[in-house]
Design a protein around this nucleic acid. Structure first.
Ligand SMILES: NC(=O)c1ccc[n+]([C@@H]2O[C@H](COP(=O)([O-])OP(=O)(O)OC[C@H]3O[C@@H](n4cnc5c(N)ncnc54)[C@H](O)[C@@H]3O)[C@@H](O)[C@H]2O)c1
Ligand SMILES: NC(=O)c1ccc[n+]([C@@H]2O[C@H](COP(=O)([O-])OP(=O)(O)OC[C@H]3O[C@@H](n4cnc5c(N)ncnc54)[C@H](O)[C@@H]3O)[C@@H](O)[C@H]2O)c1
Lengths: 211, 211
DNA sequence: GCGATATTGTGAAATATTGCACATAGTTGA
DNA sequence: TCAACTATGTGCAATATTTCACAATATCGC
């Protein structure tokens, strides 16, 4: 469609990876970095770094490199992480709680403003981060009232689709799903899946070959 | 190099995805499935399913489809998940504990046999799954004695490299890293990273475009 | 001011991955 | 036995992504 829609998805993901060492460099007051050094820090090819950035503008200075602070600001602008996002989490088991408690998300502007579970014994409990676990029946009005934009699903797999449907219908724009099932989504909602077991299986495949 | 090394990494990951609905189909006693139906369940192209499988053999029957049970067995053989794997986990914070407790991993043959932390107040504590948290100084001998093959890192980011080095040096064959840092590895050790925040940033990028 | 040096931005080549389209082969029913 | 049907396996074309290689442009020392 438009120009931006032709940007490779892997490039977008790499931008996020680039921002990690940049934050460290900013802390250590390194003013400038070359694509070569940044590439080495991220384990990619230097031309890749330049090309990824070039999709969005000319952020470097030829013969010099990239200003660390400026580049980080630009990347955050591109990824839309220069603003806060409002999230909720459905399924307050071990994983859901770990995510809700995680400081890194808060630091990066991901604000969890509601937590839901269908287990009656969990409802009403206060998490260390201050959130109170609500019944899943309150998802619809919470999403509306708190203007929740992203939903995180950490329920049992068999409930995942149901809550995804409910979240989408309530108006969330995106879902991050940790349940190991394929979620059917509507056009208006972007979904990303995280499945640790797939990564483990990938590792198993490779090391079994060697043995 | 050899034939297998030319198999695309995405194909390997998809095999793991295919196994999820296959397990459900096996439970519901569906004897046979076509590449078209399996593809729809996984949200991919049917030709992709056939091609991915064809890298490893001819598992289907023309005009019929794939026998669900046989296919699942074959995929598990390929991914080397038809056997048990011995794992340890370093960093028993919220995320580390959630992973150690997770039933799915155990069910799939990933056995956590040791848990380590450097926080003295955590050492000696018994987890619900029965593991006792040990000091990180015991990593080397535990990996050797328990023949641990895969290490999972869920420490603070700044400690991740140190423990990765220690795990590799102790003889683990693979590392699954959850700390948001680039880990430098040796040739003999395969690494996979899981970074939830990257996924969130990807979502943020897409939904910010729409708004 | 100018040559030597560094490093970006980018077109074009190389490589990797996906999807099409159809020959191939098994099944079913007459 | 054979025709009609179904769905796999696969060569090849299409697409996507990565990497190369170099012109463009900035800096530095003299
Ligand atoms: N923990 C992990 O490491 C991990 C890794 C990958 C995927 N996942 C997936 O994330 C999801 C949540 O995992 P988790 O580890 O947080 O699971 P968990 O068992 O801690 O809790 C998951 C949910 O199930 C409910 N639940 C758990 N036990 C229950 C019981 N006895 N009765 C009624 N309800 C109960 C909880 O209320 C919670 O909402 C699952 O789909 C899991 O497959 C988890
Ligand atoms: N929890 C998540 O959702 C999540 C998501 C993505 C990545 N991660 C990463 O995984 C790693 C672990 O995350 P977590 O949520 O389990 O972190 P956590 O804060 O629960 O614990 C992490 C580790 O730090 C130690 N620790 C924590 N607080 C401490 C303190 N006050 N004093 C001394 N030691 C302390 C713990 O002993 C533990 O080993 C981090 O690198 C984090 O960035 C976590």
């Amino acid at each position: 469609m438009n120009k931006e829609s032709k940007i490779p998805a892997p490039s977008i993901e790499r931008l996020a990876y680039y921002s990690r060492p940049l934050e460290a460099l900013l802390d250590s007051e390194t003013p400038v970095i070359s694509s070569e050094k940044l590439a080495r820090l991220c384990g990619v090819n230097p031309a890749q770094v330049r090309k990824d950035l070039a999709y969005f503008g000319e952020f470097g200075v030829r013969g010099v490199g990239y200003d660390v602070r400026d580049l980080l600001v630009e990347i955050k602008k591109i990824l839309a992480t220069d603003r806060d996002w409002t999230l909720c989490i459905v399924g307050m088991g071990n994983l859901g709680s770990a995510i809700a408690e995680n400081e890194n998300f808060k630091k990066r502007g991901y604000k969890f403003v509601a937590a839901f579970d269908s287990d009656p014994t969990k409802i009403g409990r206060t998490l260390p981060c201050g959130l109170i676990i609500e019944p899943t029946s309150r998802i619809r009005e919470s999403v509306r009232d708190l203007k929740i934009e992203i939903g995180v699903i950490t329920t049992r797999p068999h409930e995942a689709q149901r809550f995804a449907d409910l979240l989408m219908d309530s108006g969330v724009k995106a879902i991050l799903n940790f349940a190991p099932v394929q979620i059917r989504t509507l056009e208006c909602c972007k979904i990303e899946n995280v499945d640790f077991a797939v990564k483990l299986e990938h590792l198993a495949y490779h090391i079994a070959k060697i043995l």
